[in-house]
Design a protein around this nucleic acid. Sequence first.
RNA 1: GCCCUGAUAGUGUAGCGGCCUAUCAUGAAGCCCUGUCGAGGCUUCGACUCGGAUUCGAAUUCCGGUCAGGGCGCCA
Length: 601
Amino acid sequence: MKRTHTCGELRSSDIGKKVCMQGWVRFSRDHGGVEFIDLADAYGITQLVFDPEDIAAGADRKAISAALKDFTRESAVSVDGIVRKRVDGTEDPKNRTGDVEVLITKANVLNRSKAPPFELGDQKESVLPGEETRLRYRYLDLRRTEMTEALRFRHRFISAAREFLEKNGFIEVETPMLTKSTPEGARDFIVPSRVHPGTFYALPQSPQLFKQMLMVGGIDRYYQIARCFRDEDSRADRQPEFTQLDMEMSFVEPKDIQDTIEGLMAHIWKKIYSKELKTPFRRIAFTEAMNSYGSDKPDLRYGLPIIHITDIVKDAPYDIFQKILSKGGIIAGFNVKAEIAKDKIGRNDVDRLIDFVKKNGLGGMTWMRATKDGLDSNIVKYFTPEILSELRKKMDVSEGDLLLLLAGPVRKVLETGGILRRKLAEDLDLVPPGTFDFAWLVDCPMFETDPASGKKDAFHHPFVMPTTPLNDENAGGASFDLILNGNELGSGSQRIHDPDVQREVFRMLGISEEKIETDFGFFLEALGYGAPPHGGIALGIDRVISILLNKETIRDVIAFPKNKKAQSLLDGSPQKVDDARLEELQILSVAIDDIDIDEIK
RNA sequence: GCCCUGAUAGUGUAGCGGCCUAUCAUGAAGCCCUGUCGAGGCUUCGACUCGGAUUCGAAUUCCGGUCAGGGCGCCA
């Protein structure tokens, strides 16, 4: 018989029906006579009953009994039976199907399971096996409700996104996976060509150039659920392959792209949470984000801004401050208000915070406590009453507050401040659970300069339309990041559509004329055929989903992720390939430690 | 490349240099049990990541490796 119902389906209204149920044996309880089996599938759990003294007409007691012997945990089984009401008082209110049970009339094992390496079901956090085991047996891990639900949620998110985009005239176009390697940016995964030995494709880091050329091609509005590849080290929120919701639009300006994303998110919100999402999202300028929160992706769910006090204390004869100020440094800090600090920061905790700050690269941290007599600290003696009074005003000090002051080079103070802010928020439980705070990071610079080498790099990427003359010291770029709860979900921008401007940006990045030609010549040529003003954005799907589901890592929302070392514990990749295959590709694999490269050359 | 944390039965864990023939739970195997619901009871099975060092004695301390995770660098 074919499956008639899933394991999440049966209700009281089905009582009396003859059904066929198929699924996995999750738990079974044999009472020495009557036996209960929790049959599980992606949709829920239904209780099956075998009662040797209550056999339905036409059922073969011995045959059922024999079949149940092979109903080992996680075996795939098929059962015919009759839906009936549970004995009064034995209903299971925790289960949607808990009012009914299925009396078995016929049972057979579809595929017997070996003893699973770990317990499935809705286990508490404490009995979850280590991730290594979960990844090794991912197919079993996926049977867990938590994983099943994560993947279903992910699907609903993407499905709602598609619905919105299609309604708004976007069409999905697939861009190639075998593309050209570009020297800029992340390391590429490279793929050898058999037909052209010695040459290589690269897997795309993003469909950037192709989607822009789609705009030149008149596609007007494109989207793609695009797999992207970057051969860089993993993090909790970074995998070597990941998925982006990639979009591009023609004849638009930045506001149009942002409006579209806000509409998209609002639509998804309505679909999956049945809630209105507040739009437009707030805008925060890059410099404001850095100055006030020490981050280009500030978590705005709580306050605790960095307060700048350089101007107030600049004349205080405190050696350390003076030394730092003379080198162009700044002084800034936090007021940890008594209300939020409660009693959680004692003297020892302050010392720990100082160590924390030192470990993050600043010389130290000064602190003051506000008492009813004023500010108490070993450095107040350097400050005049006027300075202290201004300080109290600027930092909004009231009794019991704790002031933490950082001094050092601008960039370092802001960065460390941002890190310290996050730590304080965590330590003091400032992050409200279950809130989602979107924001746009806007007014970004066009370039950033590596302080070590002095080399100019694209802040976002080299295809961003400049908003000021390029030779401007602080040239701006029309790029914007979507931020959610302190995470960057994606970056978008107005693109350069003028090949001359594009060429100039490449030059500013120090790419030689020759390189520009070989790496981007085809693209510049494309822009030269009436490329429309266009722009777009790409959202990291894995990241959004993991944030919405409150997961620690994006691995928990990816069906088959790689581990930290970019290996798949499930299939054992990456692996060596046969010499014959390499020979065909004219590739020779040698351990670099064993040879003298120069000698070979 | 660097820093930090960890590694004990299939799984999750406890473990003060000698009370370790290593705890508990779960699991597996067997037995008992007719209304349970990660059922219960009894019995059995099953482990100190590897190599060195210190020590009379190391799961425990130290050094090194391996593996796993978090982070820095990297990720235009």
